[in-house]
């Protein structure tokens, strides 16, 4: 008979246990949110913030996104210096704004500009998730509206990367109105015969989903991104039942017919170029 405990896991590090990874300083690595693998930050960054084991897409900052999307040194930022204000004198909004600025090193939850994608000129907006969860305030709406107006004037396509918790509560009805304002600008740009590709990243929700995120001629999503109008927690609280696995993820939306493509991060630029070239006639 086998002795009890013979195949037991070693109890401490001195026994040469398998937990030696615990010694890696935390600031050098990050645990994958999906498969729990410990990932070295350097390697993770090289892999565009995607887990090399399970393909989980970590968030990218707006600047990192621009860096991997735009041709080198082609990005020119537009509409710099418009800053959000506490227009409604909303509880602790000033405080939240200054910590958002500190957190993200950005002025608002979106960065706009022009750049080239494999030499094709485009207008680009990229939302910044670290700025109040990418929520849409009046300045966010204003910058995106200006970008579509600029793109219409110059007959340029627009590529937009979305990540958002929705309309920003702290600017009340004025942020809700940005949904109509941006939608109207998207429509004018579209009526001018121009292309708009929206790229949805994790998470894209609420008032952003219910406006420009869903208004692209072509809608792309990164794998497993949460894309919804009402968030899963709110729905669970409302209907008092657990939601099916994978509900509201990109793979679910493509099944239901609401997005065109799911493209992993490393192939996004190639796809954008391919789609852009169909519309501009540029040959490889």
């Amino acid at each position: 008979m086998l002795k009890k405990g013979l195949f037991k896991k070693p109890q401490n590090i001195l026994e040469g246990g398998t937990n030696s990874r615990a010694e890696i300083p935390e600031e050098l690595c990050r645990k994958c949110a999906e498969c729990n693998k410990m990932l070295f930050l350097g390697e993770l960054k090289e892999n565009l913030n995607v887990c090399d084991q399970c393909g989980y897409h970590f968030a990218l900052s707006a600047r990192e996104r621009i860096f991997i999307t735009a041709d080198k040194n082609t990005f020119k930022e537009l509409f710099v210096g418009i800053k959000p204000k506490n227009i409604l004198d909303f509880f602790e909004y000033d405080k939240k704004l200054s910590s958002a600025v500190q957190n993200s090193k950005e002025e608002e939850s979106v960065i706009c500009g022009t750049c080239k994608i494999n030499k094709i000129p485009v207008c680009l907006f990229v939302m910044e998730g670290r700025f109040m969860m990418g929520s849409m305030g009046t300045v966010t709406g204003e910058k995106i509206t200006r970008l579509f107006e600029y793109a219409l004037e110059k007959s340029l396509p627009v590529i937009g990367f979305c990540v958002s918790g929705g309309a920003r509560m702290q600017e009340g009805i004025l942020s809700l109105m940005q949904m109509t304002k941006t939608s109207a600008a998207v429509k004018r740009h579209s009526d001018g015969g121009n292309l708009y590709i929206s790229v949805l990243t994790n998470p894209t929700t609420g008032g952003v989903t219910a406006s420009f995120a869903m208004e692209g001629d072509i809608i792309i999503s990164e794998p497993k991104a949460l894309i919804c109008f009402a968030g899963p927690r709110v729905i669970e609280q409302t209907i008092k039942q657990q939601l099916p696995k994978g509900f509201q993820k990109a793979e679910f939306l493509i099944e239901k017919g609401f997005i065109d493509l799911i493209v992993e991060r490393s192939k996004l630029k190639d796809y954008l170029f391919k789609l852009l070239s169909f519309h501009t006639g540029a040959k490889k």
């Binding site: 949904m179 429509k187 406006s211 869903m214 009402a230 409302t238 239901k256 017919g257």
Partner: peptide, 19 residues
């Protein structure tokens, strides 16, 4: 706010209606 509403594209429907 419910499963069916999300499955049938509540966000898309609102966006299109606004436009």
């Amino acid at each position: 706010c419910g499963i069916g509403a999300e499955e049938r594209g509540q966000g898309q429907a609102i966006a299109e209606s606004i436009t």
